[in-house]
Design a protein around this nucleic acid. Structure first.
Lengths: 253, 253
DNA sequence: CAGATTTTTGACCAGTTGGAAAAATGTTAG
DNA sequence: CTAACATTTTTCCAACTGGTCAAAAATCTG
């Protein structure tokens, strides 16, 4: 496997998700305009000022924002903090993201995409146990490799998900319903134990993300000995046993 | 300007935990002193009123603080917000808790006690399945009845638990180690499947608290139909199956 | 290279924040 | 009733907040 993680690698995480550009449509055109310059009727020939520098700086900012937002939440984080982590002045940061909320929105929409990817990969035509096992693995790897994203997500949930509630109710719900259907099919076929597919998915989310969101607690309890890097391997083994053993249909006895 | 009563039921939540009174060093109410005996040289006796009113107001403040801290976290919450929810002016609130941090600290230390109680109740001399099942039930009930406490705890974890890391590494760790030992004994006796007791406990925490911390997500996915009050019953049934079925030792064959 | 454009910076602002001080208003024991 | 103490309110403040703006600096054009 790839027992590597750490900050430098995770740097690209968010940007490395060119999948869908969800509901954000922010044209970062920091074009300075005078009041007199009203919008032209049809502006199709809008030059895209997305220069190299702009993209780089935006990535740096988003990375810094991830660092701060994931710890303090939206309200608790300050632009100054983010700017400092990003190594630039506050006005300079605001040149790229005129609003604090905009940074967060970008982060959230990009996050959702990467966050749902593992579940999307669960194939109906695969072997149930292999698929579920792989899904758990992938989720656990994300908790290990991208803990900040996990915490960012958790922070948003705790607040009631004001910025992404729509996406949850539409995209996420649809995806989960689809996969729940897959699980139900497997159950009907007797391939896995009959149980509630929704709560099954919830429990996989909960158990895997726990190792990112409650990392401090996990470490504190496991201590120096077992709290090291190996804890994810232990967790993987345990969760596999919990879910697969639990799902194994037992011959009536 | 009428301070509006919020949820009267939830008002007493924290105070309603008469369990242990932990680490908060509220010494047994020193009566009011007259100046006569106040001037004793060796009197380190701080004037600690703790009148009835004080206790009432403090409870109101703590309740309001729970409401706000559990949503916005420590940094994101403001004293003004808390004061408004508590139905008093900011300076008035500061009269009872001179520091914002102090409110949070109180909340956290009281929380830890109630939060660990369910695990403490898991008896080594009981039937393993009954004990584990009861533990899961209790934790789930707490997620259902005291979701704000759960979120307060989660918020603290996400930040790295700066205010309670010590307690985690000492009290919590000791408790978990004790109970892990109990679980190991049961495993040795062949009463439950052999597995990692620490991660087993983690997974119970994760799955149960999920229904409080990620409540928005759960509701969004289950929709109006199954997202109602019944979701906790469904969750209880599911989790019971997951853990107990998963732990049932199967006759080898 | 000049000129145009993009990026960065420093000064600044209005509103919010945690908190201090003190005056004003209860409350209560004697 | 009244002094002593408890509580509340009013006023204030310095630091911080998200954000603006024009000018300076850097970069990109031809």
């Amino acid at each position: 496997m790839a027992p590597k993680n750490k900050s430098p690698a995770s740097q690209k995480v968010i940007a490395a998700s060119p999948k869908v550009m969800a509901t954000d449509g922010s044209s970062p055109a920091p074009k300075r305009q005078h009041k007199a310059d009203a919008k032209v009727a049809t502006a199709p020939a809008k030059p895209r000022p997305v220069t190299r520098i702009q993209r780089e700086k935006q990535d740096i900012i988003l990375e810094a924002a991830l660092e701060v937002f994931s710890v303090h939440g939206f309200r608790g984080a300050t632009i100054d903090q983010i700017a400092e982590v990003a190594g630039m002045s506050k006005p300079n940061l605001l040149y790229y993201f005129p609003k604090k909320e905009e940074i967060h929105r970008r982060l959230m929409s990009e996050l959702l995409v990467t966050w749902l990817a593992p579940l999307e990969e669960m194939r109906a035509d695969g072997d149930p146990f292999v698929e579920i096992r792989s899904y758990i693995r992938r989720k656990l790897e994300m908790a290990r490799d991208f803990p900040r994203q996990s915490r960012l997500f958790a922070n948003e949930m705790l607040r009631g998900a004001p910025h992404i509630i729509d996406m949850l109710e539409v995209d996420l719900k649809a995806l989960v319903e689809e996969k729940a259907q897959v699980l139900l099919t497997w159950m009907d076929q007797g391939k896995i134990s009959r149980t509630d597919p929704y709560h099954l998915i919830f429990s996989i989310w909960a158990t895997t993300q726990h190792y990112a969101d409650f990392d401090v607690q996990v470490r504190a309890i496991l201590g120096k000995g077992r709290g090291g890097e190996g804890r994810f391997e232990d967790a993987a083994r345990y969760l596999e046993q919990l879910f697969l053993h639990g799902l194994t249909p037992r011959p009536k006895g």
